[in-house]
Design a binder for these strands. Structure first.
Ligand SMILES: [Fe+3]
Length: 905
DNA sequence: AATAAAAAAAAA
């Protein structure tokens, strides 16, 4: 088989190829090294338990590597043209085969060569030798998507005989020659990896199949990377290559950090002191304790208010769980890019502490769509490589191989958007890579209370798969509605292959209203921790307020100074209130914050806010901050008095969390925390904006259960459970209609999510990957879901600049931009266009107008790597831009406003 | 006529 090719390319007039034999050797060796040095213990155990013993497990793995491109030994593949369109190269390689006796291959023209792509063909050949479908389906899926049905495989050899054997005459010597050669490769593989015949290759569980599929793709990508495993000159004597050396150098170029061995610490208290310099506080200690005494730790849900140290608790949990379950990395998922960026330095510090202790380098990845723009991530040094003999100094590094869009999730320590986790439940090509990456780690998901029903569907399913892999999961959240809490545990539990009815669980699992609360699984037991140190807590007064009383109340409350917050439900309302209130109180005393600001300006505004009313800030005498929901999301700021539009109970409580958050001295009039709720209604008729955002049902229930005072934190869970309970309350006919609407609404969301959602994992017996990524109902136009993990119509993001006399500048600067210097900075000046411009009716026209505009005015952006693919708009001297019938105006104080353009005549 | 906030989109 020395004359078959696996890869070929013409570069600078020189011809290169990679002989098939070489590529098979390379891949088998690389996958073997990955097994030894990269897979975590937990992952290996999963495969081993499916196969019998470790030696056999490694052999199966290497056999996959060796046989993955077996079907490149077919006329269908060998007659493929080179990508570089090099006729000379193609011809020379075919001549090699002619000389070997494959007469006629040079002139062979197959009717359907693409019907037998080599992954599928490989599976077909293996099945014809009697290899089981677990193993063969991994070969069949090694290009990212497993075959759709057994039938597709079984018809191959008969229907497309010539693709495999050059002609359809079985007795023909050339037909035979192909067959013999293919079988020879197979037999060599068996011999090399110690299987006596095709029946000796063991079957695998479905979860083991996915992990090995991922590992095979990974090994193939590494072995196909010319920087690690170079092609060979076509006239070069390849027998001179030292295999041992080729593998060693190739692998070392890729392998930059050793596998993480979690520290075998003595006790949790010392670990806390070591990592963070303090002893664990109550909630932290209780979580650590639960993990410590669990014999089969699974999922841990920690519901607790901000400020109890959930992040540190999770980081220590990662170390504990990694040690207990044999994991070698972690994924820390957050709801937004901004929160990921925000937590990144803290996690970096924790990891630095670990690497220093262990005297071993580890690589850290920030994983989201705009990670490349983050400086903290950017300044992590590139890994130099492993110094086997010398001791490493133990620093954080990055390995560029993991910066690819699909390889990112394979890195060992990852901070990223939760989407990266949710995507593991979405049917898409190369999904096995994502599963491979996650199954290596401990998974932490933060701020789970913030996810809607659509994301929830993906979260549950992703968690279920984690259960199947035995991956420990830590969920951090504010109070969860009991039903969601139960779904989380249940899905994990089902993933492990057990029956929910056999679970030993507390009766009030779903209605438990303690807060803080830890719920966790330990083997077949579900346990809850409800006893925590009694917290002092505090009482918040709730007052309902009419819009027309707002100014007067503000005036009265702030007469002795103080910081007031006003959180409303729509951007437009925030902007209107800003006008009204700044008129009365003066521009200098009022701030506005919402998402319709350019991203950089918003970051500045938030930093500014933190410096004024964040923790330990020196507070201004008087300030009114008006904003939308951005204020309730993870900003650690502190208001003396707070006003809010009516919103669902859990969100109101999130907002209340910003009221008297820290213990500081406050103006005399504002020493009692008061929370004013705007937009309530005797008749339960709410304003259209609030309705559109939250729906009538939740607003009605919230208003119904809204008390006159709330004790923080003890009332929190009770109120949330009441609001989200399914019981009947008598609020008349409108309520029943709203309830029905809500059910339909949620049902639609869930259905949409399920369209492209991955199916349940199999029970942990034998399985295969056939049909794993099949699209269930491709023609079902109704309820068509799109392949995404967030439920939203597409919104359009643009970069905003303004016109100057001599060029263009950023909106809050006047210096002309120089693309060769400013491209990266420019790329961060984005804003999302109003929904009105991206409705189904409008979006195509909006985008095409933008594209035409960009081609004309901003064509020079497209050659900048930072700007490639982005759309920009240039504001005129009035800070305006006309787009698809709308007049957009950007104001530094107000943010983006828009109005329909007057059509005259 | 719409209405918050939020993310993502390439393979051997
Ligand atoms: Fe390959």
């Amino acid at each position: 088989m020395n004359h078959l090719w696996a890869k070929k390319v013409e570069k600078d007039g020189d011809l290169y190829w990679l002989p098939l034999a070489q590529h098979l050797n390379d891949t088998a060796a690389v996958i073997g090294l990955l097994w030894e040095h990269w897979l975590s213990k937990g992952q290996k155990n999963l495969v081993i338990s499916s196969v019998g013993d470790e030696e056999k497990a490694k052999n199966v793995t290497q056999l996959l590597g060796y046989l993955h491109d077996q079907a490149k030994c077919t006329p269908a593949f060998q007659t493929k043209k080179s990508y570089s369109r090099s006729d000379d190269l193609d011809k020379q390689l075919l001549e090699k085969l002619e000389k070997e006796g494959f007469i006629g291959i040079s002139t062979l023209s197959l009717t359907n060569p693409t019907k037998s792509v080599h992954a599928l063909a490989g599976q077909a050949l293996l099945e014809s030798y009697g290899v089981n479908q677990s193993f063969s389906s991994i070969i069949g899926g090694h290009h990212g998507k497993p075959v759709e049905s057994s039938h597709d495989v079984s018809v191959q050899l008969e229907s497309y005989e010539a693709n495999y054997f050059q002609n359809e005459k079985e007795a023909d010597p050339i037909h035979q020659k192909w067959k013999v050669l293919q079988k020879e490769i197979f037999n060599e593989g068996l011999a090399k990896f110690d299987f006596k015949d095709s029946r000796a290759i063991p079957e695998l569980s479905q979860s083991a199949c996915v992990i090995l599929e991922g590992l095979l793709i990974m090994a193939d990508w590494i072995a196909s990377n010319e920087a690690y495993f170079p092609l060979i000159g076509i006239d070069e004597d390849d027998s001179a290559i030292s295999q041992e050396e080729r593998i060693q150098t190739g692998f070392k170029k890729w392998f930059k950090t050793c596998i993480w061995q979690p520290e075998d610490f003595d006790d949790v208290v010392t670990l806390y002191k070591d990592r963070f310099g303090f002893e664990p506080r109550d909630v932290q200690a209780k979580l650590s304790e639960s993990i410590q005494q669990a014999s089969e730790p699974g999922i841990f849900i920690l519901e607790a208010p901000m400020g109890v140290g959930k992040t540190e608790a999770a980081l220590v949990a990662i170390e504990q769980l990694a040690l207990k379950t044999g994991r070698s990395g972690m994924f820390f998922g957050l709801p937004t890019q901004a929160t990921s960026n925000g937590i990144f330095p803290r996690i970096k510090e924790w990891l630095a502490n670990i690497t220093e202790d262990a005297k071993q380098n580890q690589s850290l990845e920030l994983l989201h769509g705009k990670a490349a723009l983050n400086d903290e991530f950017d300044k992590i040094p590139k890994a130099q490589g492993i110094d086997i003999d010398g001791e490493e100094n133990g620093t954080i590094v990055t390995n560029e191989w993991f910066h690819g869009r699909k390889t990112g999730i394979l890195d060992d320590f990852i901070v990223g958007t939760v989407d990266q986790f949710l995507l593991s439940a979405l049917k898409q090509k190369h999904l096995a890579l994502r599963h491979l990456g996650l199954s290596k780690k401990v998974v932490v998901i933060d701020e789970v209370h913030a996810y809607d029903a659509y994301m929830g569907q993906f979260l549950y399913q992703a968690i279920r798969w984690m259960g199947a892999y035995g991956v420990p999961v830590v969920i951090l959240s504010a109070t969860l509605p009991g039903e969601r809490r139960e779904e989380l545990v249940k899905n994990y539990y089902l993933g492990t292959g057990k029956k929910w009815k056999d679970a030993v669980k507390p009766d009030n699992l779903a209605i438990q209203n303690a807060y803080p609360l830890i719920t966790y699984s330990d083997g077949n037991k579900i346990e809850q921790v409800t006893q925590f140190e009694k917290q002092e807590g505090y009482q918040v007064e709730i007052h309902r307020l009419d819009d027309n009383e707002l100014l007067g109340t503000l005036e009265g409350c702030l007469s002795g100074g103080g910081i007031a917050g006003i959180i409303v439900n729509t951007v437009r309302r925030a902007q209107e209130l800003y006008h009204l209130i700044s008129n009365q109180f003066g521009l200098e005393n009022v701030e506005l914050l919402h998402s319709s600001f350019i991203a950089t300006q918003r970051v500045n505004k938030e930093t500014n806010l933190m410096s004024k009313i964040g923790k330990n800030a020196i507070r201004p005498d008087k300030k009114i901050i008006i904003g939308t929901q951005v204020i309730e999301q993870s900003l650690d700021i502190d208001f003396d008095i707070l006003f809010s539009d009516l919103a669902p109970m859990d969100l109101l409580i999130q907002r209340i969390g910003r009221l008297h958050r820290h213990e500081i001295k406050r103006p005399e009039k504002l020493t009692i925390p008061k929370f004013y709720v705007l937009g309530t209604s005797q008749t339960f008729e709410f304003n259209s904006g609030s309705k559109a955002v939250y729906g009538d049902y939740l607003l009605m229930r919230t208003q119904h259960f809204l008390p006159e005072q709330i004790r923080i934190p003890s009332d929190i869970s009770v109120l949330v459970q009441e609001t989200y309970a399914k019981d009947e309350i008598d609020l008349g006919e409108d309520y029943l209609k709203a309830k029905n609407d809500q059910e339909v609404f949620l049902d639609c969301k869930e259905q949409r999510a399920k369209t492209f959602r991955l199916s349940n994992p199999n029970k942990p017996n034998k399985g295969n990957l056939i049909g794993w990524l099949n699209n269930p109902n491709p023609d079902d136009r109704e309820e068509r879901g799109s392949a995404q993990v967030r439920d939203s119509s597409d919104s359009i993001e643009v970069i905003v600049v303004k016109k100057t006399k001599t060029g263009i500048s950023l909106v809050d600067e006047d210096n002309d931009l120089d693309l060769s210097i400013d491209a990266k900075r420019l790329a961060t000046n984005t804003i999302r266009l109003p929904q009105a411009l991206s409705t189904i009716r409008m979006i195509d026209k909006t985008i095409s107008e933008l594209e035409i505009y960009n081609k004309k005015k901003l064509f020079d952006w497209q050659i900048q790597s930072w700007l490639k693919g982005s759309l920009g708009i240039i504001l005129d001297e009035n800070n305006q831009f006309l787009l698809n019938g709308y007049r957009l105006t950007y104001d530094l104080q107000l943010g983006l406003t828009y109005e329909k353009e007057e059509v005259n005549g």
